[in-house]
Simulated scan of single mutants.
Amino acid sequence: MKIDLTGKLALVTGSAAGIGLAAAKGLALAGADVIVSSRHTESVREAEAALRTAAPGARVQGFVGDLSNAQGCDALVKAHPQVDILVNNLGVFQQQDFFEIPDAEWLRFFETNVMSGVRLSRAYANAMVKRGWGRIVFISSESGLNIPADMIHYGMTKTAQLALARGLAKRLAGTGVTVNSVLPGPTLSEGVAQMLKDEVAASGKTVEEVAAQFVQTHRASSIIRRAASVEEVANMIVYACSKEASATTGAALRVDGGVVDTIA
């Protein structure tokens, strides 16, 4: 199967690094024009350069703004009023005990991880429907099914994304616009590497070895017994955005290494 997204414009939020950047690269390599976004100008410029290196000749645009609030989302839509593919990847995570999470953090996580996708999907979906084609993907997590005890606020937002994607897929039934969730498991992104840096320094092991040890200790149901790469997750995202995925909608597509212990 050869995925060809030539002529399609894709927006990937939170795409300066990690899964978002890998997804943007994958879409660019498939021929899509890509908009990358971050709060920081330098991060956007670096992401644009990375995409042009990975996919020579790719048409890449950048947006600098904070999409965790309505003003930032409005500014993005004003700058780029129409897209064919929307990947709602923006998200924050942090290990924190339930009894130490203040209200402001619950709201910050919800605004960032959930409402950014709500606002952008609401802004872009109607035009997709009018054109009879579109792809909306929410980057959820296996943590939306296996709520982590040390990141309950994060797990809550990932479950909310699953509900949002499923409901929106049903709302857009028969329009040619598909809506899906992609659920990564433990993934060796820059953020996870940062979280593990102290243990890497103390152990003298590679970050891949420490990540594998973390998976086997904290996600013992993992079948691959290691962290996935961002490219492995991006492969599923690109498929969900493809023309070939036309019969895949309302789905929760797991790239979790088998962490979620279910056959369904």
Rank of each mutant, 00 (worst) to 15 (best):
E208G: 00
K170G: 02
S37P: 07
S222C: 06
A234P: 06
Q194A: 15
L168C: 09
N126A: 15
Y154S: 01
V137A: 07
P148G: 02
F93K: 01
D66K: 11
I263T: 13
S229A: 08
L188D: 11
P102W: 04
S242H: 09
C73G: 00
P186L: 09
T175Y: 12
V192N: 01
S43A: 10
I147R: 05
S37L: 02
G62K: 05
S203F: 00
Q71V: 04
A193F: 00
E208H: 07
N146V: 14
R226W: 03
N126D: 15
T248F: 01
A220F: 09
D261Q: 12
M195V: 07
Y124W: 13
G72I: 00
L21H: 08
F138A: 06
A220H: 13
A251C: 15
V77R: 15
M115F: 13
A169W: 01
D97H: 13
A234V: 12
N180A: 01
E244M: 14
I152E: 02
H80N: 10
A173M: 10
A173G: 15
Q82T: 06
G14E: 09
G134R: 04
V230G: 05
E46L: 15
F214K: 11
E209R: 04
R171I: 11
G258W: 11
G65P: 06
I101T: 13
A32Q: 07
L172Q: 05
S68C: 00
K158T: 00
Q94V: 07
K25W: 04
G62A: 10
T159S: 15
V215C: 10
A70V: 09
G134Y: 06
A125L: 03
P81H: 03
L145D: 07
N89V: 11
E190H: 01
V207G: 05
S116V: 06
R39H: 09
A125Q: 06
K130H: 15
L188W: 05
L107E: 15
